[in-house]
Design a binder for these strands. Sequence first.
DNA 1: TAATATTATTACGTATGTGTCATTTTTTTA
DNA 2: TAAAAAAATGACACATACGTAATAATATTA
Lengths: 196, 196
Amino acid sequence: MGEKSIQKRKYILDTARKVFVEKGFKKVTMKDIVEACDISRGGLYLYFENTSQIFQEVLKLETQQDDDLFSDSIKEDSTAADILLVFLKEQKNELLRKNDTLTQAIYEYYFENQALPKKENRLKKQFDSAVMIIERLIEIGVENGEFYCEDPAGCARNIMFVLEGLKICAQTIGVTPEMVDQEIAYIFKNLGVEEV
Amino acid sequence: MGEKSIQKRKYILDTARKVFVEKGFKKVTMKDIVEACDISRGGLYLYFENTSQIFQEVLKLETQQDDDLFSDSIKEDSTAADILLVFLKEQKNELLRKNDTLTQAIYEYYFENQALPKKENRLKKQFDSAVMIIERLIEIGVENGEFYCEDPAGCARNIMFVLEGLKICAQTIGVTPEMVDQEIAYIFKNLGVEEV
DNA sequence: TAATATTATTACGTATGTGTCATTTTTTTA
DNA sequence: TAAAAAAATGACACATACGTAATAATATTA
């Protein structure tokens, strides 16, 4: 596979991403992607078999980029509270930036694909890993006297459920920035931090 | 419209519900419903125009039944904490009973239909009304000395976000009964109630 | 029970989507 | 630059879904 091929592959995935952002997952057809990419039908099938496969690859790219973004935004001398705040603000931006996210598509995809038992569930892994990171952060905060928390693991999971709730609500009933800020304040209040 | 017609209409909606439970919303076609009902194509079009309309009617039935169910389960001499617990346990059962709910379909439907600005968003109304009920419940609990809470409205909204988070997670990454119980305990703890 | 109204069926024309393959175009290599 | 390899095209045969309308079956009413 030549360099050209690699670029075209990347081009298709980038373009397909826009389609998934636009239409979610379930309603997207190979035809949609062919047309968005302005390539030939056979041309697409040369690279990918179906929309599921394309979506998985889109997600793979996405995840990489997100990870990079997060580690970039942590400064060396940050406190636990700082880092948690950065994380939550990032989530806030993400969930309010409703028109350029794969959120809907991701949910639709996992609606279909959760059932498959042994198959790896990337979403679950991400959730669990986020819980672990937050848990660790809370523990550090407690050690430093920044936070008060009896059950860091439980608190971390609660934070993630709140975020998931905000995320799905942003996609269905709509949430305002103020509502998100309130929830963030609530989280810190539960950790014994009054002002954010 | 004769009695027969009314019954057939009901039959179609009940059967269509099963289809939506099975396939979500976006992938359901009129053909799917025709086949599930074992009626003729034209026969279905005699009663309904498209899947959106059918789904809306299914939801209407569903909402009625749910409301009835909740008011039935409140006893006269309940305390605020009792009622809240009943509500949360009901939500727990609902979200764990993943294979007989319209949850996925509802999300998919509102993914498509949130955008429409002025159009009434039934989901939002339900959310807001639940928040108000919980808020009132918390206020009563505070008056009775059952709860401690400085911001019943904020707390009520937080509870709803947690529930939404649990609900979507149940559909995508899976949640255990224990996880739900933990979140319920967490909610009560935030209201100053240690034991549930 | 005959006439009328209602309800139901099926087949048709149209539209959209699928995956493939013979062919053409482009790129690479010798 | 000619031959070989790789990449891309678009028309195909097939499948699925749509909404309708002529026709048939069933109820209702006179």
